[in-house]
Amino acid sequence: MRLAIIDDELEVRQKLLSFIERFCEEHKKDIKVDMFSSGEELLSRYEEESTYPFDIFLFDIEMDGLNGLETAKKVREKNQTSVILFITNMAQYAVNGYEVEAIDYVLKPVGYIDFSVKLEKALRKADVKKPHHVILHTKDGITNIVTSKLMYVEVLSHDLIYHTKEKDYRLRGRMKDAQEELSSHGFVRIHKSYLVNVGFISTFRLTEIILEDIKLPVGRAYKETAMEAYMKYLRNG
């Protein structure tokens, strides 16, 4: 896991680094940390790159020049899935943190417990956002699709149909196997015929869910587990 700290105060950067080291020791984690003294430094170092090589960003909001929020907006242009945490003196900026999909913020002076709770949340989310691929053996050949593009899997007769936004893929298979492969990657069984990517759920009703504009029924036997899985996804994803 790679983490970037962007703060103009050396004292704060060192404090955060010591907190991260303590956290890694306590939780047996391995986090590689890079530090930047300004938003400009981060942006200029990776100007030529198509993406920033970090899973988690810790931005101080109040910095001279480009502040944390503005820097985060620039980072989001290249990294849509990285996790962003803010460090701030002032509560009202944190509300705007939602514009860049920040997951939370830490108030100064930063305490270890507050920081460790938020860092754990960030690590959980960063873990979920890692891309996972599924290999499909269709009649047309072998296809590799990333699960974040897979909306749902449907069973029809003895075939499985993998529905993505662009195309559907039909192949022989059992729903049980698809469920085993995908359930740890944000997929949940909502019906005997459907396995759904919770990331695409826009509405969750008692008897049906809506994936963008597709309505799928929720089976009575699956209602509870589907809701539990959806809530778990909202918590971690």
Partner: peptide, 8 residues
């Protein structure tokens, strides 16, 4: 109590 709030 430290309250952090993301709401928009």
């Amino acid at each position: 109590i430290k309250l952090s709030c993301i709401a928009n």
